[in-house]
Structure formats: structure tokens, C-alpha cells
Amino acid sequence: MFNPRDIIETLANNVKQTTSPFGIPKFMVNKWFKDLSLPKEGEYMLITGLMYQFAPFIEKSTQYLEKYEGTKMASLLKYAKYMPGYLSGIGLAMMTSGKEKKDAGQPLKDIALLLQKSKVDFGYRPDLDNYSGILLYDMGDQKGFVVHAKKVAQKLKDAGIKKIITVDPHTAYAIKELFPKYTGISFEVKSYFELLDLESKDLGLEVTIHDPCFFGRYLKLSDIPRKVLGNLGITESEIRNKGEFTSCCGGPAESISPSLSNEIMGKRVEELTICLGNLKKSGADVEDLSTLLVRHI
């Protein structure tokens, strides 16, 4: 386990200096929309919160943290906060492969396509699409979170945004529940799958669904992806912990302790063993809901 103080102060400094917890400039992170011609206005504004885009950088930094966890090198992390955020961020961005960065944008393209197919009137403006600050909140840097969240919320309010579509559970929770409480600014927030209206099919497929903690427990949205899948004729195989009682995947512990994160992920996979085995036999793998849906519309 790393010293939490070293990790928190590094993340907090990065957010303060660059608005990104990893210090990576936004233009290097957010590229998924560039070859799509999405409208800039609509009834809803799509706000990704950059979480999908951060995924390959999180994976790369976790690989390094995993290497040094429990070694003498771990104590050197306390000096990271003295490094300018952009410098470490650009370094991390350069160490992450182009393919991984490109792949991370695919679910967002899929989500945009699903919304278009469902005739949802939405726009996308990259200048308004910012990180929500949720990691600072989860880590207990309440002051840092509130300062950041106020800036993000105010920018959206100033642009006249009232209705927002989010894509990941953490950003959805931040904008829907935390922004009104800590910034005083409220929006009508929908997770993208709440707005899907796809043509019915009878695919006769079965999948295992892993509910993220924030969708299952905090936002209580588990039934909606099941309805969307059911409409396509995709049923769910029974697993032990799901919906409001879903098991954590271990992701939030990645930065403080990659080994703990792996241990918890291992427990979750054990609960899914039979299903995973079947999925593997059919040649499938774990994938995002949007990827599965796009393949079958």
C-alpha cells in the first residue's frame, strides 16, 4: 500500500494545475469526437466527464504503481507532488500506446451512435466536457473537490445547460447528486441508457451483467440496462451479487494499492466463474454495454 497522503496530494495538485487528476492536458485525452460530426447544441448536452478517456492512462500508471508497491521506491512518491502536473501528465501520455488511447474512445462513439439511433436530441461541446472531480471526493479531499466542482458546474450553467447525458457511473453520481449538494447548481441528469429507444429484436442471447456500485446501489439504475437488453432479446444469466447488492470490482483502490484492487477483482471474478467460463467458450469477452448494444442494432 502506498502512503495515501502522497497519492492524494499528487492527485489534488494535478487537478488544481491541469483539471485532470493525472496531469494530462485535455487536448491529449479527449479526441474521440474528432471524426464524428456531432451537433454542438440539443435538448441534452453529452458530458463524458473524461472517465472513459482516462482509462488507458489509469491502466498505465497502475502498472507502474504495481511494480513499486511495497518496495523502497514507493517512498519516493512523496516527491511527485513537487513535479508540475503537466510535466508528469505529458510523460504518462507518451508512455501510453496510441492504440490503447484510440480503443478507449470507441465506447463513446458507440454511445453517440446509440443515442442517434434512439433519436435523442443531444449536442457535444468538448470545451464544456470536464472531469467532475469525483476522485478527490472519494479520497476525502473535500475542499479540493468543491473548488473544482464549482468551476465545472458554473461553466455549464453559464453556457445555459439544463439537461445532461452522462456515460459512466461516477460522473453521473457527481453531477446528479454531489453538484447540487456542494455547488448549489442542479441539472437534470440522465445516464445514456435511460434514453435509449432501440428497435425490438429477438436475438436469443444470454449475457452476465456486472452492475457498477454507483449504478446499482447509489443511483439505483440496474433495471434499465436489463430492459434495454431485454428489448433486443438478450437475457441475463443469474449471478450471486447484482443490482443493489452488486460486488465491487476493486477499481477505486487502484491508485492507493494495486494489490488490494487485484484481490477484490479476483473475488468478483470468482463469483462470475461459471458465467465467464461459458462466455469464454463462446469466444466472447468482458465488454462495455455500449459495445454489446452497437453490435446488435
Binding site: I7, G140, R217, I256
Partner: peptide, 29 residues
């Protein structure tokens, strides 16, 4: 405290509605 994943299972199952998850988050703050 930072081993806690903020997954919310403790809060969801607490018979006294003591909200252990939020207590841990408060201790982090």
C-alpha cells in the same frame, strides 16, 4: 481508511442506518 472503496455495501446493509460508508468518508476528510 483509504483501503475503503466507497462501494456502499456497508451503508446499504446497516440495520441501524448509521451510514458506515459516509462515516469512513468523513474520517478521510
Amino acid at each position: 481508511l483509504w483501503r475503503c472503496l466507497h462501494c456502499g455495501l456497508c451503508t446499504h446493509t446497516c440495520p441501524r442506518e448509521a451510514d458506515p460508508g459516509e462515516i469512513i468518508l468523513g474520517l478521510k476528510r
